[in-house]
């Protein structure tokens, strides 16, 4: 029996930028009010009045078939399930943030509020295992009022995407982003505007990590030690940055700096 490979299909021609997916994810996964696992990207409004164009894309973790986050992780905090979802284990994470640098889509986000104290460094989409293994669609997909987001088996969605392009070649760019990019992703994208304008990187079909993994295999022991040192430094810097940022937003000088700055 072949294993179903879970995937998403996002169609930018159908997205109305209503953000129901973002709120649904936020509630389902109990995301704090100042954080999110889904973002809106795209051109916003492009052109000059009255020749205008809109185009938005919502995206979260692409659940790559060859996840760069996973190969960059020195402590195996990332795992890829046989059926697709790429998940993160906070108990193993040391906070080195290699995954953040490795991900070509900028998905893993460092949680500055928890960090070292609580051990949960990184936040990203989980693929809603509590839903997909209970006959429900992922939270973002389930609520989409226009079916701009769909969920299903990867092969089936790729087929559907190509059929849609074939039926309306005037409406789409003849390409399914994620079918081959970076060795393939589980978040597939159809669009009427160039993928680069949606903010998607132009990636080769050979996964980036096909090369890097060989190197990484030799460097894990080294990375473990060095990662710990780096993360200590990083946490310190992060704490300072956070204070500064919070202060900037409140238009006040951070405590401890007020005297020095006078």
């Amino acid at each position: 029996m072949t294993i179903k490979h879970h995937a998403y299909l996002f169609d930018a021609t159908r997205c109305i930028d209503c953000r129901a997916c973002m709120i649904s994810c936020s509630v389902e996964n109990k995301i704090e009010m100042d954080k999110t696992r889904i973002w809106v990207a795209g051109i916003g409004i492009k052109g000059e009045y009255p020749d205008l164009q809109r185009g938005t894309m919502v995206y979260h973790c692409m659940h790559c078939l060859h996840p760069d986050c996973m190969s960059a992780c020195p402590v195996r905090a990332y795992t890829q399930a046989e059926d697709g979802p790429v998940t993160y284990n906070p108990d193993l994470c040391i906070g080195c943030r290699y995954c953040m640098n490795a991900c070509p889509f900028g998905v893993p986000h460092f949680d500055y509020d928890k960090g070292l104290a609580e051990g949960a460094f990184i936040d990203k989409c989980t693929f809603c295992p509590q839903r997909i293994y209970n006959d429900q669609k992922p939270a973002c997909v389930g609520t989409c009022p226009t079916d701009a987001l769909e969920y299903g088996e990867r092969e089936e969605l790729i087929k559907r995407a190509h059929e849609r392009i074939a039926a309306h070649p005037d409406k789409y760019i003849d390409h399914v982003y994620g079918e081959f990019e970076n060795g393939g992703t589980s978040y597939l994208i159809l669009s009427h505007i160039p993928f680069s304008e949606l903010g998607l990187p132009n990636l080769p079909e050979t996964p980036v990590n096909a090369v890097s993994e060989k190197v990484m295999a030799l460097t894990i022991p080294f990375a473990l030690g060095w990662g710990a040192v780096l993360s200590g430094v990083a946490a310190g810097v992060a704490m300072h940055e956070k204070k500064k940022q919070a202060a900037a937003e409140k238009d006040i000088v951070p405590a401890g700096e007020s005297e020095a700055s006078k």
Binding site: M33, G199, Q245, K250
Partner: peptide, 21 residues
Amino acid sequence: MATISRRDFLKMGGAAAAALA
């Protein structure tokens, strides 16, 4: 690539009275 950045979120969090899950 995000048009709503983390910084925007922090701003919005400031608009909401409390940062609660």
